[in-house]
């Protein structure tokens, strides 16, 4: 017993180190691939040598913030997805059913059409929309006691309602088409302002999730067991919901609705290291960052030298995986 636990923890450590190496290599790759030819070594050099050359400016003002956005958004979405799946005990749950993506999209599209000359950036509207979408879903789902099924159903209903409103605005107004690129989920235009926007939310959200990871594990066991263990279920639910909102709201605000990261990553992680959320959450953060950083490299290769939205890449990877999950649904508990 003691030995097997020790072996498990050392294999987890191995896995963490391997993932970390893959992650760091991904960062280098992400920095060096792009329209302009800059080698990995040069791109790392330009992080420290500020010679004002065009290559150095490309690295420090465009590619570095973009890489960091990939890290923050990937980690945030994956942790939000893991929390979501634990809370609803539904393996197909992802931040999307909290209404945040649809809410953010609606607010951004509406702001462009109604307030075209607004001095505020679309990030603020996206955040407000994400919060509004999440709040509506939460209010509907929690009236008369929240159950996982109620949350999933009300989330999907609100998502569809908000999405159809967005569609209506786009159809009725040409300037709504402006956000079509953002709506596929893109990080290629990221700048330092985006990094400053998302970093605090991402760090605080993931930090809180890690602190409360023990309670999340209990939540995954179901209400009866959790109550038996003396947990305040409603308090934890509200807290976890808030963390999900913070993480997915900030992500969608800077990168648009990037799908499948929150769905995909927690599954892979649980497959590799088991159900303990003390481990699932930090691994999800790391794997989420890896997935998005590499997907972003692929996004540059698909139509080289031009960019494709990274959301398309995650969708290409994610859709077959989603179907696989749905088919195996009976075995997933």
């Amino acid at each position: 017993m003691y030995h097997s636990a020790k072996r498990r923890s050392s294999s987890r450590l191995m896995m963490f180190i391997i993932a970390l190496i893959i992650f760091i290599f991904g960062l280098g790759l992400n920095l060096s691939v792009g329209a302009s030819d800059i080698s990995i070594i040069d791109s790392l050099k330009y992080l420290f040598v500020w010679d004002g050359s065009k290559e150095q400016l490309i690295i420090s003002t465009l590619r570095l913030p973009r890489t960091l956005i990939g890290v923050f958004v990937g980690a945030s979405l994956a942790v939000a997805g893991a929390l979501m799946q634990a809370m609803t005990r539904n393996p197909l749950a992802s931040p999307q059913i909290f209404g945040v993506n649809a809410g953010a999209s609606l607010f951004v599209v509406a702001s462009l059409v109604i307030l075209p000359a607004s001095p505020y950036s679309s990030v603020i509207f996206a955040f407000a929309g994400a919060a509004a979408g999440g709040a509506i879903v939460y209010m509907i789902a929690s009236s008369g006691g929240m159950t996982p099924v109620k949350l999933a159903l009300s989330g999907m209903a609100v998502h569809l309602f908000l999405s159809s409103m967005t569609q209506a605005i786009i159809i009725l107004n040409e300037s709504g088409e402006d956000v079509l690129y953002w709506m596929t989920g893109a990080i290629d235009g990221s700048n330092w302002q985006d990094v400053i926007t998302i970093a605090p939310f991402s760090v605080i959200g993931i930090g809180l999730a890690l602190v409360f990871s023990g309670s999340v594990s209990v939540l995954g066991l179901g209400d009866e067991t959790a109550k038996g263990l003396g947990q305040n279920m409603n308090g934890i639910r509200i807290l976890i919901s808030l963390i999900i909102l913070i993480l997915s709201g900030a992500s969608v605000a800077v990168a648009g609705p990037i799908g499948f990261v929150g769905l995909l990553v927690p599954h892979i992680v649980r497959k590799l290291i088991g159900e303990h959320y003390q481990y699932v959450l930090p691994f999800s953060a790391l794997f989420g960052a890896i997935l998005l950083v590499y997907a972003d490299v692929l996004a540059r290769w698909i139509a080289f030298p031009y960019e494709s939205p990274v959301g398309i890449v995650t969708a290409i990877i994610g859709t077959p995986f989603f179907l696989y999950l749905a088919r195996k649904g009976r075995n997933l508990k």
Partner: peptide
């Protein structure tokens, strides 16, 4: 440029 703030307004602050 479309009406309102565009991406170019943001680019203008970049040394590139």
């Amino acid at each position: 440029a479309n009406e309102g703030k565009t991406i170019v307004d943001e680019w203008k602050t970049n040394p590139l």
